[in-house]
Design a protein around this nucleic acid. Structure first.
Lengths: 214, 214
DNA sequence: TAGATTGTTAATCGATTAACAATC
DNA sequence: TAGATTGTTAATCGATTAACAATC
């Protein structure tokens, strides 16, 4: 079926989903690619190409059935029912992510935290308990957890990853700046804050230089 | 000079910088593209192409001068001296970012937070004070702040952005899922958590389906 | 019907990768 | 010298954009 979907397209799907859910809440039945493009400041052709990968066929003059699109995108992303995840590394970022409500819209639910710091173990943050990291494998197995959020300090990233992999974790959302080594059957997605900041500051820097030259 | 540097290259520069700083700390004077590629699990040719944009010329057989490369990359990114930033939206994510030590390596220093919630105004988080949002313009002007981190709820993102822009902010690090509208001279860089999560969960979903077919 | 919209096929654009000469 | 490494030029690959026929 969806033999290959471009990653940039996948990355745009959540914005479509957000708009579509809003449209559905407003009792809209059909929505055109042009309308979506306008709202999200994208090109209509790009929206059509992106939506094509859902397999939903639109009606000329009318657009796409909103509900049908929503379901197709949720299906494609695996967001039909939220999957539970363990978070490892209960630092300030970890605590923030444990409390981030937004994830429930995105098919992810953090159910517990793990750390090695005795100060943190046993505590609760945003209503979620923190366990000892050496209980990870046991609890992951018992609760059937296969997704993990990694928010440990950089120097422990690979070692902790090895523990997660050994415990049967198949998807790692990596907030560390380390390129993790994992077996072929484990998927790592990196949120690279340094990379993002680099893009912002280099553009600001370039802008500054251009101004000077004027 | 650097007429156009590809964004993917910019995004890889921080990893190079991290490794180079480590090398410098270990008293390494020269480092080869091959060595870097090995360490970061990249292709040597990609490393050479990336480093070419710094303008630093390497010595065949020896590689690149470590210190020279570090300086060139920091210059390119504008990370030679950390720039101060205001954070707007002191929720759980905002508080986490106010306390995130890592930024000091990346040329960014959060100096204060802003919010509209009277409960938060006046408080301190990680040693940084929270001010009323309507003091933003005044304080930004007085302290010469031109970079801002946006961590407000989605529905306020555009309105708050308009306030930042009016206050003379030229760079916005956007953690909301909204595509912000700004004038041409303002740069927005978005950290799109939903997009990242979409990539992870869609790959997990696809993997699942493939397994079923076997 | 007229016209807006879809969906397909082709063209363009930009980044990655390959090939290889130049260099120390 | 031999050989590892750089840096340049060309080939490949994949995503975006354009053009346009099909459709309601």
């Amino acid at each position: 079926m969806n033999s290959h979907v471009p990653v940039p397209t996948i990355r745009r799907l959540p914005s479509y989903l957000r708009l579509l859910r809003e449209a559905a809440a407003n009792r809209m039945e059909f929505i055109s690619g042009t309308y979506i493009a306008n709202d999200l400041k994208l090109e209509p052709i790009q929206v059509r190409k992106d939506l094509a990968i859902t397999g939903v066929v639109g009606k000329p003059r009318m657009g796409f059935a909103v509900i049908e699109l929503i379901q197709a995108i949720e299906e494609l992303l695996g967001w039909t029912n939220a999957s539970d995840a363990f978070l490892v590394g209960v630092g300030s970022l970890g605590i923030a992510l444990m409390g981030y409500d937004g994830f429930k819209e995105y098919g992810l639910k953090v159910v517990a935290g793990f750390d090695v710091d005795p100060e943190k173990i046993g505590k609760q943050f945003h209503g979620k308990k923190v366990f000892d990291l050496n209980k990870f494998a046991e609890l992951a197995k018992r609760m059937g957890i296969c997704t993990s959020i990694l928010t440990v300090p950089a120097q422990y990233a690979q070692d902790v990853t090895d523990i997660l992999v050994a415990a049967g974790i198949k998807g790692i959302w990596n907030f560390t700046p380390i390129k993790l080594q994992v077996p072929d059957d484990v998927i790592v997605e990196k949120v690279d804050l340094a990379a993002s900041l680099a893009v912002l500051s280099s553009k600001l820097q370039a802008r500054q230089h251009n101004k000077m030259r004027e």
